[in-house]
Design a binder for these strands. Structure first.
Length: 469
RNA sequence: CGGGCUGUAGCGCAGCUUGGUAGCGCGCUGCGUUCGGGACGCAGAGGUCCCGGGUUCAAAUCCCGGCAGCCCGACCA
């Protein structure tokens, strides 16, 4: 059995590999209703760590958490024309409740701009109430025809921020702040995923937004995944929901609003950004278990050494877990690899006799013999090294698969294996239509230096073109 | 919604052509030997063969009608 692979190799069938990992790492199962998802404890613990990291950053940016209802009157959605048009194909609508047909159908929220807009209008009186910075953690429903666990499910978990500002500049600056200091910082520092930042072309904009910013990550198969988005909504929703305030001159003025979100899709992105043929590879900062201590065999002295190591690692703030010597060694090693635990510490009689343990890195497979007394300091510094190297490695991979091109035809070719960078002037609406026939899209527009432009009419913008999830 | 495929044990499948009382691998349970890269032996448990109807002495198998799922074509975090 040795050497036989447990997972479908990525090179053979990437989607199958993804499904295998999700199942075998015990991340999630399909729910009974098509498109729904059961998130299993291991997958959920990763999501919880994401929530905690993102939530901390959101609060640092000044927003407060609140909760708005799952059920939204259908009439609310209709108040913003582009919004309802964009979302109507994927709405789940409640027509019956309490044993009767409802007078007005109720929509299960696909996003909460409308309800929150209604309440912002109520709560905002004067410029002193601005900016109003809200966030909520919730589930939302967008009916999916082609669901995939974490990446596209009919119900998913997310965080949605909603803010109101006195002027366009303040709204735009705040959306940018969230985008850089919450999303991009989280993606780079915690998930070790490098991104291309930019704005969506008008065709890809959020329904009802005046501008949409995105963080695009590259997966191991070269396809793009939108990992978070931030929208400037202009006065579209303020107008629809009468979000007025009295300015310093005593006149009524319309607010400018923003919204921004990140979801359980991040879990899928994490899997696909770092995973290899042996399974998940988790960056230490996100890993629920950073180090697993494996007893090579279930013997008294081995178990005692393991217990002592767990205690030591705990004092060093390393999230660790013990694998007692039940079952075959190889099997247990494989199982922990599939789950992507960054560091494996093997404790066996042979090493122990010399006062050593074996420490193995999940990302490189590198194996070190380390004296018992040095385990905590070694692991702590190793985890930081791995976090950094995983980011650098992912960035090198992304860069190696990103090509500057000068024609649409070259872009199509380059997007076979990664991203193409092409002058936005050379794309335009016609180019987008051409790309669509090749199942390609403009993922984002950015300035030549990689920064985020204010709008798509700026001179000299670069379009990042790729296949996407 | 259009085209192709599949529903048999927890999972993956064979059996169906040519009807005859339900099988394999993995997993699971118990005991024992093992354990430094997916261990092995022995003994077990587990099935409305997707649903409904029909043909037949007899249907997983043949016929009719449903339902569900998967893959490929237009949207989305």
């Amino acid at each position: 059995m040795a050497g036989q692979s447990v997972l479908t190799p990525q090179s053979e069938d990437f989607p199958k590999w993804y499904q295998d990992v999700v199942a075998k790492a015990e991340m999630a199962d399909n729910g009974p209703v098509r498109g729904t998802m059961v998130i299993r404890p291991y997958g959920y613990s990763i999501w919880e760590r994401m929530q905690s990291e993102i939530d901390t950053r959101i609060k640092r940016a000044g927003a407060q958490n609140a909760y708005f209802p799952l059920f939204i009157p259908e009439s609310y959605l209709s108040k913003e024309a582009a919004h309802v048009e964009g979302f109507s194909p994927e709405l789940a609508v409640v027509t019956h409740a309490g044993g009767e047909e409802l007078a007005e159908p109720i929509v299960v929220r696909p996003t909460s701009e409308t309800v929150i807009g209604e309440f912002m209008a109520k709560w905002i009186q004067s410029y002193r109430d601005l900016p109003l910075l809200l966030n909520q953690w919730a589930n939302v429903v967008r009916w999916e025809l082609r669901p995939r666990l974490f990446l596209r499910s009919s119900e998913f978990l997310w965080q949605e921020g909603h803010t109101a500002h006195a002027d366009a500049a303040d709204a735009s600056a705040y959306a940018m702040k969230i985008h850089l200091e919450v999303y991009n910082d989280f993606l780079e520092k915690v998930l070790a995923v490098p991104t291309y930042l930019g704005i969506k072309p008008p065709s890809e904009r959020f329904a009802g937004a005046t501008n949409t910013m995105t963080c695009e990550g590259m997966m191991r198969d070269g396809k793009a995944l939108q990992m978070a988005t931030s929208h400037e909504l202009g006065q579209n929703f303020a107008r629809a929901f009468d979000i007025y305030f009295q300015n310093e001159e005593g006149q009524a003025a319309l607010c400018f609003t923003t919204s921004w979100g990140s979801s359980t899709r991040l879990v899928g992105g994490l899997i696909m950004a770092h995973g290899d043929d042996h399974g998940l590879v988790l960056p230490p900062h996100i890993a629920p278990i950073q180090a697993v201590v494996i007893a090579v065999r279930d013997a008294e002295d081995v178990n005692a050494a393991c217990a002592s190591l767990i205690a030591t690692l705990g004092r060093a703030d390393v999230r660790s877990s013990l694998d007692r010597g039940r079952g075959s060694f190889g099997r247990r090693v494989t199982d922990w690899e599939i789950k992507g635990v960054p560091v494996r510490i093997e404790v066996g009689p042979r090493d122990l006799a010399q006062g050593l343990v074996s420490i193995v890195r999940r990302d490189t497979g590198e194996k070190l013999a380390v004296p018992l007394n040095d385990v905590d300091t070694t692991v702590v510094s190793l985890l930081e090294t791995m976090q950094e190297e995983m980011f650098v490695g992912a960035r090198a991979f992304r860069d190696s698969r990103t090509r500057d091109v000068t024609t649409l035809e070259e872009a199509v070719e380059a997007a076979e294996s990664g991203f193409a960078r092409l002058a936005w002037d050379l794309v335009g609406e016609k180019g987008e239509a051409r790309l669509k026939t090749e199942a390609l899209t403009v993922r984002c527009l950015q300035r030549a230096d990689g920064s985020i432009p204010a709008d798509e009419r700026e001179e000299g913008l670069i379009a990042i073109i790729a296949k996407s999830y």
